[in-house]
Amino acid sequence: MSKPKLAYYLAGGCGGCDIAVVDLSETLVDVALQLDIVFWAPTVADAKYKDLEAMPDGSIDVGLVSGNVRNSEHEHIVKVMRQKCKVLIAFGICASCGGIKGLVNLHTTEQLLDKAYINTFSTDNPEKILPQTTVVVDGKYELTLPSLMDARPLDQVVKVDYYVGGCPPYHEHIGKAFMALLSGQLPPSGSWITMGKAVCEVCNRNPVLQGKSKKFATTVKRTIDGPPSEDGCLLEEGYLCLGPVTQGDCGSKCPSANVPCRGCGGPIPGVKDFGLRAISAIASMLDNEELVDQIPDPVHLFYRYTLPSSFLGKKIKR
């Protein structure tokens, strides 16, 4: 049997997901030997978009897309990826739900350009030059840049077969996901590749796993308000940990490092809108109503990784 063909495209992401795949080190050596990487742009392999465009439709077995869809170039290439790949995977929380970079949707393009190119303290741009989609150099060479759009998760642009959470996905989880892919042991199309447990269920701070019950939080704390206890539940102590509603494929990495889970693993099975379920879970764990108003900046807390995939976030009034 010939080796399965793999393509990887980094759209509106940071490259962290690419690095996470590369970092698989030993596992990847095994996996890489079993795979024929036909395209990996713009990072790891020296491949051009036209190479991908020239491949026959459906000729690639698995395509991974990391990053959200944020400009016209991303939109074009993810459509090409969909045509060429039999199975298309939203890899990482940016591709799956918009990611932390999806928070751009809270602002207009004008506000963002203004901040990035004019108003930042360290920016020196007296002529207020902003990126343009076309510019003519020396009166004859036309150069173009993609145009910006609202950030979208991959499935708002093309059909997605599988989702992998994490920012970036945890390496052991990636290893398992690749093994599942190679052995054809995949869940039904449209699902998340996950062990299906919440962060809480694999967290060694969880009182329930020690036969105790979870107590209500009687205060609201931020991580800068001092360190939590060694082994108590962060949520009980008032740190707003989103472990109850987040897929725990990372093995509860943040709580074991004294940091509350922020939800990068994506929503637990059955949840369509991460932030809404997180609101519900956290509100139910608070001891009294006053605490609700003490939560600082709830939009960034509950939608840190998933705003573009939210019910209400698609129609934000700005």
């Binding site: 109503e289 976030g313 934000i316």
Partner: peptide, 20 residues
């Protein structure tokens, strides 16, 4: 109903910030 009002108030804060 205690749960309901906490969830509702928190949801309302978020929804309002998102433009509802």
């Amino acid at each position: 109903n205690y749960k309901a009002i906490r969830r509702f108030n928190l949801f309302k804060r978020v929804a309002t910030e998102l433009g509802v």
